[in-house]
Design a protein around this nucleic acid. Structure first.
Length: 576
DNA sequence: GCCGTTTTCGGCCCGACTGTTTTCAGTCG
């Protein structure tokens, strides 16, 4: 319900902006703030009274009553009105780069343009160039923008797995030209999907950076450029923005371009409260530079704890940082082991048992669980016999890899009825098993939930691997009753995995945040099928930070291997 | 439309770039 209400409020914001333009910018922002407030609510809005809603920061009388109206009737009269006035095809025009509320209105009033298609015709007829506020250049730019977008007016967000390698290559290509080259933006905040890439270089001499940038193999076309800012795109149409900044101002620029926009606005407000000013060049008291060199300096000067980039979404981190009460989120160095690792014993593994163990040892792990696929995964699961052979092999290797503890386990397959690959006696022989859904992704919510919970109730199942089975941008998450799943995880003391594979990042961050609030244990796993993939846990950790997952909640951040079923991690202490 | 240990009314984040203008509006991030 909250998600639906939040979507309504976002739509209300967009349509209000369209109707009223910048004159009502503050109302637009109020709707957006309220939408975010709803997204971050612990409770379901449908269960809240109007009074309780008004008590939520960002929700006032007017929006509270609209939310109640929606809960009770399924409609918001004001939204229905706006929708009637601005049909979806028309609203789509707003998503064309270069078009905002003002120009879209002008197109409709002066030329009768009602859709992206209509705009295309108007451009072909040369009707835009004489429109006040437009011109020949604008007409050309819009034509290009439409062409780039295809028929739809919406710029696609791409899965992080598609974007991160490109961004990394670009950053590496710019190294050595200045003091630092990094990516910022939503990529640094580690969002699941990325709209465009922001690259930041600290260099006193701007020109060599800008020149090198244009020649990088990943850069196909430079679209616009000034002294310090260049906009380009890759051969696949991914937009890349480069900014070159003075090394002394790198921290301010990094904070600014990392965002999120909402987080930045709150930061600037804090600066104003102190009579200062914050922008991408620094934190200023009049002409005096209060802080600029590092992000840490800026947070400290504003009286805040440092906020890790993935948490910068204005979902309560500013308030907590001001009270010096941010949860200590898990860091890569906290991980003491990996509890979901494959070898070439199951067909999809690409490294031997010994190679994987070496890799784990090199990472300094105290323990590792070898969890090749259970036999029900037809293509590459291990029979009972093969499992026993592997166990004997591990037994022989234990001494060699001591003091690192090797757990022998399996990644079990959860059947549609919650059944597992082996009989109970055999399952009892494993040290540690994870279980996951690998088929029948489209079962109805109720059945899918029952299936998962049934697996959790089995004593051999210590963690649920990639609980939602999603592949970002490719396969949607399975439908689950999240509340029921979290309750079962607490009850059965079963951990939930954050799978570190870039295409999975599963649990989703918002579910992870709910889970740790309920006291659910988390494991951050590589699910590695090759030695270098053991390092993927770095992604898992950043993703976990988006979910505010504290170190104490992470089972494989504890010193020793998990032996018995663990306590509810937060038991007896305040929720993070 | 929301909000208030300086406010219940008057504020509400900041700068660059583009293209249209000839001093600036609109858009973007």
């Amino acid at each position: 319900m909250n998600e639906t209400v939040a979507r309504m409020l976002h739509e209300l914001a967009e349509l209000t902006e369209l109707k009223e333009g910048s004159a009502q910018a503050f109302r637009v922002r109020a709707y957006e703030n309220a939408a975010r407030a709803v997204e971050n609510l612990d409770r379901d809005v449908s269960e809240m009274t109007e009074k309780e809603l008004v008590a939520v920061k960002g929700i006032g009388e007017s929006i509270a009553s609209k939310i109640r109206e929606f809960v009770e009737t399924g409609h918001i009269a004001k939204l229905d009105e706006l929708r009637a006035e601005y049909p979806p095809e028309f609203v789509e025009l707003l998503h064309v780069p270069g078009l905002g509320p003002k120009r879209v209105q002008a197109l409709r009033d002066e030329l009768g343009v009602q859709s992206v298609e209509g705009l295309r015709h108007a451009i072909e007829a040369g009707a835009l160039r004489d429109l006040p506020g437009f011109g020949e250049k604008t007409e050309q730019n819009l034509a290009k923008a439409i062409e780039r977008l295809g028929m739809s007016g919406k710029e696609v967000r791409r899965p992080i797995a598609d974007v991160l390698p490109v961004a990394t290559a670009i950053v590496e290509g710019l190294e050595g030209l200045g003091k630092a080259a990094v990516y910022a933006g939503s990529l640094r905040r580690f969002r699941e999907t990325i709209g465009d890439v922001d690259v930041l270089v600290a260099a006193a001499d701007h020109r060599p950076v800008v020149e090198r940038f244009a020649t990088l193999p990943d850069i196909a076309e430079v679209r616009a450029g000034g002294e310090t800012k260049v906009t380009a795109s890759t051969s696949t149409g991914l937009q890349v923005d480069l900014r070159v900044v003075d090394p002394d101002q790198f921290g301010a620029a990094l904070a600014y371009f990392t965002g999120s926009k909402a987080h930045n606005i709150r930061m600037r407000q804090l600066a104003i409260d102190r009579g200062w000013m914050l922008n991408e060049y620094g934190l200023f008291d009049g002409d005096r530079v209060v802080a600029a060199k590092t992000e840490q300096d800026i947070y400290e000067a504003l009286g805040l704890e440092f906020v890790p980039p993935p948490m910068r979404e204005d979902t309560g981190e500013i308030e907590r940082a001001a009270r010096h009460d941010l949860p200590t989120v898990v860091e890569l160095e906290d991980l003491r082991g990996d509890l979901h690792v494959h070898t070439d014993w199951s067909g999809d593994g690409r490294a031997t048992l010994e190679e994987m163990l070496h890799g784990a040892k090199e990472r300094g792990y105290a323990y590792v669980a070898i969890t090749d696929h259970g036999k029900n995964l037809r293509v590459n699961g291990l029979s009972e016999e093969r499992m026993l052979e592997q166990r004997a092999e591990i037994e022989k290797l234990r001494e060699r890899f001591a003091p690192m503890v090797i757990l022998h386990g399996s990644e079990l397959n959860i059947g549609t009825d919650g059944s597992l690959d082996y009989d109970d006696d055999f399952l009892a022989g494993f040290d540690w098993c994870v279980a996951g859904v690998h088929d029948h992704f489209d079962l109805p919510k109720e059945q899918q939930t029952e299936r998962l919970i049934a697996a959790m109730r089995h004593p051999a199942v210590r963690a649920i691997a990639h609980p939602f089975g999603r592949i970002i941008g490719r396969r949607p998450p399975i439908e689950l009753d999240v509340e029921a799943v979290l309750a079962a995880a607490v009850e059965t003391r079963t951990a939930l995995e954050i799978n570190s594979h870039l295409q999975r990042l599963d649990l989703p961050a918002e579910v992870a945040r709910r889970a740790v609030n309920e006291g659910v244990r988390i494991i951050i796993s590589s699910d590695a099928h090759a030695v270098h993939e053991l390092g993927n846990v770095g992604y898992g950790v950043q993703h976990a930070q988006r979910g505010w997952v504290p170190k104490q909640a992470v089972l494989n951040a504890q010193a020793g291997p998990p032996s018995e079923r663990s306590e509810r991690w937060g038991e007896g202490t305040a929720a993070p």
